[in-house]
Design a protein around this nucleic acid. Structure first.
Lengths: 208, 208
DNA sequence: ACCCACTTGTTGCAAATGCAACAGAAATTT
DNA sequence: AAATTTCTGTTGCATTTGCAACAAGTGGGT
């Protein structure tokens, strides 16, 4: 976010955009979307999940955010989705909050850093669309097996190896692929039995 | 995209960003993502679908794009998803293609319009994240019924009425919510029988 | 060392979903 | 006007998935 901006200008930007930083510990609510509809947040460090409680009462992971990710109602979610969408801290994190308008609209002070900030935000938001698309691609699979294979191959590619460790628990994985945990476990077992993968807890190996 | 830029500068921009416009008719492939990985496209008019053929051979709608929407690999999709992801024209459309670098990187000519272009693109991409998030919200529902209710309430809200007309066929709707068409039809019928909705082909009415 | 909360792993059963196949209605092309 | 394609609507059957419930394993905190 502050790439290409020296310390002095970073300080000016913080004032100009009215940025406030805040730290959170696991389990704390980072942002409740029923309030703060024009605020956006950028994860400076740590881990945050965007959670939705669906009508059936299931907890669902909408997004898994880490450093340099943005969130906020202006940047995501339709107006009618407030009910039950909130951001919660997963790993000790620091978040920078600011108003969407300050970025999107031209700054009255016409400060030079505004241009750079918009360029940086453009990259950040572009990166976000990539993650969201990836997520849609996973969810666009009809069966649990296909969802898993899709996600596994992404992680395997990212790790550059056929074997990799999931960065979260299997319970969380189930919420991430929007499936029942026991059904997912059953499917993982079946895939192991069929020799498609080999697993030991969070360690996954894809056998070609 | 060209908001806030006069005709003279728009023309310069087209040269500077090397923008080329192209028209398509329904069914034509607008972009094959296995090639053109650094090109992005903006829909000027009409309708384009982003389609994926999943491993099981099912056709799945990843995105339903209309005027002012962007697409492109830089803006979406992981590297490993080329296989089977492409954009196809739904309704007669016009698309402006350009290179992602020309927007994201600073222009050598340091033309003034570059700054405005990035600001406009920022808004366009932000809007895209909203749609993608909406889509994830729909797909995050576990059952067909919940997916439909989620989507229906979005359309109903957008129409400002409890009754509205789907902008696409029911077959397309099934691909959009990533479900089997017959299973979806069965669910729609069940919901009608239970008095939750009233339907006549693409016309949907939500009863309270 | 103990307690607690959370995770992993498993199962039976009911319900939801996908698949295949068909038929009439509507729209589009010839 | 006839032919062709796409869309809507429906059903039986096999499979997948969700639900509920339980048990053992793990790790952190006091």
């Amino acid at each position: 976010m502050f790439d290409g901006i020296d310390d002095k200008n970073t300080k000016r930007m913080i004032e100009c955009f009215n940025i406030r930083r805040q730290s959170f510990t696991p389990g704390e609510t980072v942002c409740d979307f029923s309030k703060n509809s024009d605020t956006i947040g950028i994860i400076m460090s740590g881990n945050v999940s965007l959670i939705r409680n669906d009508p059936g009462g299931n907890r669902v992971v909408l997004e898994d955010l880490s450093e340099n990710d943005v969130f906020g109602e202006m940047i995501a979610f339709s107006e009618n989705s407030d009910r039950g969408v909130y951001a919660v801290c997963e790993k000790k994190c620091e978040v920078a909050f600011m108003m969407y308008e300050h970025i999107a609209k031209r700054c009255q002070n016409a400060c030079r850093c505004h241009t750079v900030a918009v360029e940086n935000m453009f990259r950040v938001v572009t990166q976000k669309t990539q993650r969201l698309s990836e997520r849609i691609e996973i969810l666009s699979n009809r069966s649990i097996r296909e969802k898993l294979l899709c996600l596994f191959s992404m992680y395997s590619m990212r790790a550059g190896a056929s074997s990799f460790e999931l960065p979260f628990s299997l319970s969380y994985l189930a919420e991430y692929i929007c499936a029942d945990r026991s059904a997912m476990m059953r499917e993982i077992k079946k895939m192991s039995d069929e020799g498609i993968i080999k697993t030991d807890r969070r360690r996954i190996e894809m056998l070609h």
